[in-house]
Amino acid sequence: MDLWYTEKQTPNHGITTKIKRTIHHEETEFQKLDVIETEQFGKMLVLDGMVMTTDKDEFVYHEMITHVAMNTHPNPKEVLVVGGGDGGAIREILRYSSVERAVLAEIDGKVIDASKAYFPKIASGLGEARVDIQVTDGIRHIEENPGRYDVILVDSTEPVGPAVGLFQKNFYEGIHKALKEDGIMVAQTESPWFNADLIRQVYQDISTTFPITRLYTASIPTYPSGLWSFTIGSKKYDPLKVRESELQEFDTKYYHPKMQKALFQLPVFVEELLEKRKEEK
Results as ranks from 00 to 15, higher is better:
Ser115Trp: 10
Thr217Asn: 10
Gln9Thr: 06
His176Ile: 00
Asn195Asp: 12
Ile142Leu: 09
Tyr149Val: 02
Gly127Asp: 14
Asp205Thr: 02
Ile220Asn: 00
Tyr255Val: 06
Glu7Thr: 02
Glu271Tyr: 09
Gln9Gly: 07
Asp238Cys: 05
Gln188Ile: 02
Val131Arg: 09
Ser225Arg: 00
Pro221Asn: 05
Asp238Trp: 04
Ile90Asp: 03
His67Ile: 09
Glu37Lys: 08
Leu94Cys: 08
Gly109Phe: 07
Trp228Tyr: 08
Arg200Gln: 15
Ser219Gly: 02
Val131Gly: 05
Pro120Asn: 03
Leu166Arg: 01
Val242Glu: 03
Pro192Trp: 05
Val135Asp: 03
Phe41Arg: 14
Ile93Phe: 08
Asp34Ile: 12
Tyr216Lys: 00
Ser98Asn: 09
Lys77Asn: 13
Phe250Cys: 11
Tyr118Asn: 10
Ser124Ile: 15
Ile220Met: 05
Ile93Tyr: 04
Pro120Thr: 08
Thr231Pro: 08
Ala262Leu: 14
Ala163Ile: 02
Leu179Met: 08
Ile19Ala: 14
Val186Pro: 03
Lys241Ser: 11
Glu158Pro: 05
Glu39Ser: 07
Val186Met: 04
Lys8Ala: 11
Pro221Lys: 00
Thr208Ser: 15
Gly109Leu: 06
Glu279Ile: 01
Thr189His: 01
Gly49Ala: 12
His141Leu: 08
Gly84Lys: 04
Ser115Tyr: 07
His25Val: 09
Lys110Cys: 11
Met50Gly: 04
Asp2Gln: 06
Arg243Ser: 10
Lys43Gly: 14
Phe171Thr: 04
Glu144Ser: 06
Val151Gly: 04
Tyr223Leu: 12
Lys43Cys: 14
Asp137Asn: 13
Ile152Phe: 04
